[in-house]
Nucleic acid binder design. Sequence first.
DNA 1: GTCTATAATTAGATAGAC
DNA 2: GTCTATCTAATTATAGAC
Lengths: 200, 200
Amino acid sequence: MSEVTNPKRGRPGYDQAAILEIAVLAFNEHGYDATSMSKLASRLSLSKAAIYHHFSSKEELLELALDHALGGLENVITQPGATTGPAIDRVAHVLRGAVLVLAERLPYVTLLLRVRGNTEVECNALERRRVFDRFVATLVLAARDEGSLRADLDAGVVTRLLFGMVNSIAEWYRPNGAADAARLANDVLTVALDGLRFRD
Amino acid sequence: MSEVTNPKRGRPGYDQAAILEIAVLAFNEHGYDATSMSKLASRLSLSKAAIYHHFSSKEELLELALDHALGGLENVITQPGATTGPAIDRVAHVLRGAVLVLAERLPYVTLLLRVRGNTEVECNALERRRVFDRFVATLVLAARDEGSLRADLDAGVVTRLLFGMVNSIAEWYRPNGAADAARLANDVLTVALDGLRFRD
DNA sequence: GTCTATAATTAGATAGAC
DNA sequence: GTCTATCTAATTATAGAC
């Protein structure tokens, strides 16, 4: 991926993606605002000026990182599984897809989930997240109307609790292969749809 | 509560709690690091120096806020409902209590949930959170052993998903009376224990 | 592609008057 | 309890050499 782990015949420098990867890890560890360009440069064993050769500003690092996370999520809701078939299956597809994207692009999605809307870049990212959220809210309503989901709870609350459960995975999940993420996605669907109570 | 909303015969100033309340709101809106003492002073219509009369440092504001959130949560797990009776009831008690504390001390708990462990103050808060988390994890295991909760899922994953659902409430809930919070707590327990699937 | 040096601004915090 | 003025250190970002 990066020229550091896969160097092209001794060329020493970082490319954009390699710097971004390390920057995102640092942002998640200490917070975006608490991670100064100096600290980032130390972590890369580079000077600050070298980073500015690859990115025009600190905020551009954030923008590209958020775009990578959002691209993954938006991809989930444009797949056929999210737009065709019974609503309950579409809900399951999107929940599963969100967990898998979260696991695959963990640091990027983690960063996205912590954005508060301080700047224009952050506001744009939040708006793209809201489009995703609204899509899922609509699916939940449809699954309720078709009789697949219980109707005695507020659909908005239900949707938010579902997202809360999925998004919170970013706080503790550490990747361990694709099979691991697939099992986690199944567990989420089991808890969400069937609950934790023992049934014989 | 504060001398601003309930002034003592025209004394104009803020007291510690009144400043803290507004500071916590600002920290949640823009992030702790992104909220400078200058911005905070503007928001209070005070000078920076006036804030330093009430608090010795920016971090002391954070420390007192986190302590208020943690005190509420720790209170939940020392109540009789959390330590006596069937494990499934104790799990329900703690989940319900966590939701109610979150609703009642919303800005303080919101701030707590965003702490990453950058400083000693943050690390201490995280450690107190972990004590709470471990208590709940133990309860979930006990409820499983007594046959109340399903045993086909990893108990650690289940506990984290439960917390994820509860904690995510801070991202969207806006208080509307105690009855509102009690209903929300019931909804959380319904989803967590019985799931969303329609059952006739 | 990376460096050193530095500009311009802002941060947290303090001194001392009222 | 609050103010103005100020300190020092750290911040983002740029200039120009190699």
